[in-house]
Design a protein around this nucleic acid. Structure first.
Lengths: 244, 244
DNA sequence: CGCCGGTTTGAAGGGCCTCAATCGGCGTGG
DNA sequence: CCACGCCGATTGAGGCCCTTCAAACCGGCG
């Protein structure tokens, strides 16, 4: 058994006792490879399984009636996938791999068991999930009320922060691993316009680009232009009851 | 003590034993009135309290750097307010009353206690919260990929469904209780354009209006035009472990 | 009666889209 | 080894959806 990504993730914010770490480890006993471009769950398909992303990068999205796609979320190692299957037997969103990935699937009954036996741990997981919810509302506000340039900048900052959290060596320069069409589907724009916004960010000396690699030249200004907030760095789980 | 709205709400989807109902009741022991227009929590303010909305209608929103507002969510009786305060000591969004409302505030420590002592109940609450998350992603997709007309229609359908769920007598005709500016701030549009979209929906015989009251004339077509899904009617909590 | 918040309507402008063509990198098959 | 095909990036021209600005209208309430 490899390292539990979820223990890593949660452990950043709250100390976990051995018993709790073991419980989380049981969620990651099975492994499944998802190749770049392949889909893990398809919208409307029946699915009562959850997953933890072990390695790679994925996304969840929906396809609308007119065929357009809206990317809901980018997924990184340690992220919990398809939590909505706790309430719906049919998946509300498609999950697909942006790069070769490994996921650890487990049944929702296992999560129920964990909630019953390790309530403190479950509480911590729920709390952390609220951070995801807030990031979702950040993006909602971005789509509703900010310019195309701001939305594109926001995606760059978000992906950089998530990559860095998993791999500390990532600095101002990184490879997003997204096509301009994917950035567009995440920001509600066309690939064409994403391209123009990237060029504009480049002309304003906010970023530099070379063959897929992006460098943030003036992070301060970029954050301001994007209306960006790093929600992961403000998390506080210190109020949790102490481990048993 | 009045009826627990939260028991009503959760009880729609899963049977609750007496012990569980009592535990929920304890969350609603204190009451606080919030007048129409008043704000319960302000963004960036320190707040470790949660609330359950007893009666009335509220909204949560953020104000962006340029002063524009994005409404994140409309709140109805039985809804859990400011769950994000489980992870953040400072509120990520403002909560204000759209009509005279009553809320029941309780500390997050009480929720932690409930999670520890009534894990099944807490699991049910978390599952139900996932439905909120999915509604949020529906709105995200709406903002990113649907027309102004669809977004406005979607708000009307959403509010009608929520009102009806609380008051069964609500039919195709109802009073949204929202200004056109509020609808605009929820859909990422200007009040002016919301007005034009309402007129257009009226001209197409999809809705009728008279002094604040809206009547849905062709719900089928409206749902299709709005890309709307009623996420509350598809909820399935039957897999929950049985009550103790 | 006169204010005030909300609604309604018009005209003009801009941000982003659509359509379309070119270009570059890379894997594949000849 | 090279030609081809394909996907993604890039760039241009034109158009539409929604915004901005402005003014008139309406109902309610002091």
């Amino acid at each position: 058994m490899t390292v539990s990504r979820f223990v890593e993730r949660l452990g950043e914010f709250v100390p976990l006792c051995a018993r709790e770490q073991a419980a989380l480890g049981r969620l990651e006993e099975r492994q499944r490879v998802v190749r770049r471009g392949a889909t893990l769950v398809r919208e409307h398909d029946v699915s009562t399984e959850l997953c933890i992303l072990q390695s790679g990068m994925m996304m969840s999205f929906v396809i609308l009636a007119d065929g357009s796609r809206q990317i809901l979320r980018f997924l990184f190692p340690g992220d919990l996938i398809s939590l909505p299957s706790l309430v719906y037997t049919t998946a509300p969103e498609t999950v697909a791999a942006l790069s070769d990935s490994v996921v650890c699937p487990f049944d929702r009954a296992m999560l129920a068991q964990l909630a019953m036996r390790q309530p403190r741990l479950f509480l911590a997981m729920v709390a952390l999930d609220q951070a995801e919810r807030v990031m979702l509302t950040d993006r909602l506000a971005g789509l509703g009320r900010t310019s195309a340039k701001a939305r594109v900048a926001s995606v760059l900052l978000h992906v950089r922060d998530r990559l860095r959290r998993f791999d500390g060596t990532v600095g101002d320069s990184f490879v997003p691993g997204l096509t301009q069409e994917e950035i567009g589907d995440a920001t509600g724009l066309t690939a064409v316009h994403v391209n123009r916004m990237l060029r504009q960010l480049e002309e304003e000396q906010l970023i530099a680009r070379e063959s897929g690699r992006v460098t943030l030249l003036d992070e301060r200004k970029l954050i301001r232009a994007a209306n960006y907030v790093d929600r992961l760095s403000a998390i506080d789980l210190s109020w949790l009851p102490p481990a048993a």
